[in-house]
Simulated assay, not measured.
Amino acid sequence: MKNNSNNENKSKVWFITGASKGFGLSLVKQLLAGGQKVAATSRYVDSLLRAAGEVSENFLPLYANLADDKSVANAIETARNTFNGLDVVINNAGYGIGGSIEELTDEEARESFDINVFGTLNVIRAAMPYLRDQQSGHIINISSIAGIAPATGWALYAATKFAVIGLSQVLAEDVKSMGIKVTVVAPGAFRTNFLSGDSLVIARNPIDAYADVRSSHARYLQMDGKQAGDPEKAAAAIIRIAGEENPPVHLLLGEDAYNRAMNKLEVLEHEFKLNEELSKSMAYQG
């Protein structure tokens, strides 16, 4: 897919979370190669510098604890002041969590929501005053096909990604009149380190009764390093969408994501129609 970072995205300022690996790192490298100004966050700035390169006039690596709204606000403000602008905000940071609801502790669940959902909210809240003031900008939230068509054994991960899709859909309507665009991206399986230990948490206290959950985890873990999706193509697609005058609110990435989403639409249509009469019978009579 063509990378349009030198034309449609000329002279834009990008803010990207979770930039030391995966999609985030691919985005940073492609954007810098295209002459873009990039502020990129990580909890481990040294790792980000090793992966993406040294600080330059176009590259600003920043520490941010996404669960801390003050840390996020400081990163956004520093990026905006350094580059004198803010155009595209990409909420990329997140991690996977596997296990049945019964197997996962409250602490594990809340930590997942803190990064995958509240981290996204913190970035949006910090960026919106600038975008609103200039009446332009594009917020791109990275969700997952799990937020549309979840798989066995990934309930909490699906819940966080459902949340990102839902908030993005409404945000798109809320900020449309301000000239701000919103896109939520739902990738399938890409050959990143998502299935490795530093990006994936599995329930620490498994219960023997959940054999199907264990089987599902085993199938996904066997995919590590063999996923069909190319993260460089995903990054190029996201950059391309950011350059469009009328970008989509929803973007599926990967043939697997597309197929799972379309299958889910068929299932929903069947279930809704199956109970159509019951659903419509709720009105008061008289």
Score class of each variant (00 low, 15 high):
Met1Arg: 09
Ser5Ile: 11
Ser5Gly: 01
Asn6Val: 14
Asn9Lys: 02
Lys10Met: 10
Trp14Ile: 05
Ile16Trp: 07
Ile16Tyr: 06
Lys21Asp: 13
Phe23His: 05
Val28Arg: 04
Val28Ile: 08
Gln30Cys: 06
Leu32Asn: 07
Ala33Met: 10
Gln36Thr: 01
Ala40Ile: 11
Arg43Tyr: 05
Val45Lys: 11
Leu48Tyr: 06
Gly53Gln: 04
Val55Ala: 15
Leu62Lys: 06
Ala67Ile: 00
Asp68Phe: 01
Val72Ser: 03
Val72Glu: 04
Arg80Ile: 03
Thr82Ser: 13
Phe83Asn: 06
Asn92Arg: 10
Gly94Tyr: 10
Tyr95Val: 03
Ile97Tyr: 01
Gly98Cys: 10
Gly99Phe: 10
Ser100Gly: 15
Ser100Cys: 06
Glu102Arg: 02
Ser112Ala: 12
Asn116Met: 06
Asn116Cys: 07
Phe118Trp: 11
Ala126Thr: 08
Met128Cys: 00
Gln134Thr: 09
His138Phe: 07
Ile140Asn: 06
Asn141Arg: 02
Ile148Ala: 05
Ala149Thr: 10
Leu156Arg: 01
Leu156Glu: 02
Tyr157Ala: 02
Ala158Pro: 02
Ala159Met: 08
Ala159Phe: 04
Ala163Phe: 01
Ala163Lys: 01
Ala163Val: 01
Ser168Gln: 07
Gln169Asn: 14
Ala172Arg: 14
Ser177Lys: 14
Ser177Thr: 12
Met178Pro: 00
Thr192Trp: 01
Ala209Ile: 13
Ala211Glu: 14
Ala211Gly: 00
Asp212Glu: 13
Asp212Gly: 07
Ser216Tyr: 08
Asp230Gly: 10
Pro231Met: 04
Ala237Asp: 14
Ile239Tyr: 00
Asn246Ile: 07
Val249Pro: 03
His250Leu: 15
His250Trp: 03
Leu252Met: 14
Gly254Thr: 05
Gly254Cys: 04
Arg260Trp: 09
Asn263Arg: 14
Leu265Trp: 04
Glu266His: 12
Glu269Tyr: 02
Leu274Val: 02
Glu277Val: 14
Ala283Ile: 13
Tyr284Val: 12
